[in-house]
Amino acid sequence: MFQKVFSTLLIVLALSPAAFAAKATDGDIHKGDYKWFQFNIMQSIDNKIPFENQQDTYFEMEFGGRSGILDLYGYIDIFDVFNSPNSDRHGDTSLSATQDDNFFFKFAPRFSLDYMTGHDLNAGPVQEWYIATLFNVGDRALFEEYIGLGTDIQIPWLGKLGANLMARHVRENYGADDEGEWNGYILTTNWFKPFVEFENKSFITWQGYLDYKFGANKIADDVDRTSWSLEWFNGIYWHSKQYAVGYGLKYYQNMALFKSGGFAGETSGFGHYLAVTYKF
């Protein structure tokens, strides 16, 4: 299984544009340590979360940073934060158990192979290698665990692109047949590119991510499920030292491995996000 993960990741890297790699180790693994933490108020419009959870105003606590071998990103979303009857997460629970969900938690630690081995493993555009992990947790019946390989790739103009290829283990999945099984893989990428800077040191970014799940064949024979899904988020954000405001356009295909138009509703198409951020 992991041989397949490693081989596919090498193909992805081979297709990446060449650039100069930075040194990952220089004798002090804490030299580049940093951390960040922020609160977001998010408004989702026509997103394609299964079971018609399309409109909601929610609170997001987002965080990340680097400490020695550990590279970290995560967030927790608290749904229907204003207890609004206009939210699809509010009130009626007749459609699905997911409408009772109060939060969603994503936690993505990566552990530097360069720092753990004491060797610079960079090559061409590849800056650093990681053991990559990911946890997706809902408060009722969702718990996915991922493990695989990750890297940072230096892309011309764009800068650092994070990329991870991981195998998927399903602890809970709303009663699906793959609970307790290894089932499929995920390829994730993320980026953050400032492209307009102002005299007051504020700036505008293009930021986003792409998550591609594939090979989930143990539920593909279910008429309402599929073996692959795609989420592709592209955001334009204005940032100052303390605040950020942004708009995101997200494309979904078979969100959460549910076939669009089945009992989970519309799970493919475009959704919109508005965000206001306070930074610590």
Rank of each mutant, 00 (worst) to 15 (best):
W129K: 01
W129M: 01
I131K: 08
L134A: 11
V137I: 08
G138P: 03
D139C: 12
A141K: 07
F143R: 12
E145D: 10
E145M: 05
G148L: 02
G148D: 03
G150A: 06
G150E: 00
T151M: 04
D152R: 06
D152I: 07
D152H: 11
I155L: 13
I155Q: 08
I155C: 08
G159E: 03
G162F: 02
G162T: 03
G162I: 01
N164C: 14
L165A: 10
M166W: 05
A167L: 10
R168H: 04
H169K: 10
H169Q: 07
R171A: 12
D177H: 07
E179P: 00
E179S: 04
G180T: 06
W182K: 10
G184A: 06
Y185A: 02
I186T: 07
L187C: 10
L187T: 07
F192N: 09
F192I: 11
P194G: 03
P194M: 02
F195P: 05
E197P: 15
E197Y: 14
E197I: 14
F198G: 03
E199L: 15
N200T: 07
K201H: 14
S202D: 09
F203M: 09
F203K: 11
T205H: 06
Q207I: 09
Q207V: 05
Q207Y: 14
L210R: 11
L210A: 14
L210D: 10
F214C: 05
G215V: 00
G215P: 03
A216H: 01
A216L: 09
N217S: 11
K218D: 09
K218N: 13
I219C: 01
I219V: 06
A220K: 03
A220W: 05
A220I: 01
D221L: 09
D222M: 10
D222P: 02
D224G: 13
D224C: 11
T226K: 08
T226P: 05
S227L: 04
W228V: 10
E231F: 15
E231T: 08
W232P: 01
F233N: 11
F233T: 09
G235Q: 08
G235E: 07
W238S: 06
W238F: 12
S240N: 05
K241E: 15
K241D: 15
K241Q: 12
K241G: 14
Q242N: 15
V245E: 15
V245D: 15
G246N: 13
L249P: 00
L249K: 08
K250A: 04
K250E: 09
Y251F: 13
Y252I: 12
Q253E: 15
Q253P: 03
Q253S: 13
A256P: 04
F258V: 03
K259G: 09
G261E: 03
F263E: 12
G265H: 01
T267K: 02
T267F: 00
S268G: 09
F270V: 08
F270M: 12
L274Q: 02
A275P: 03
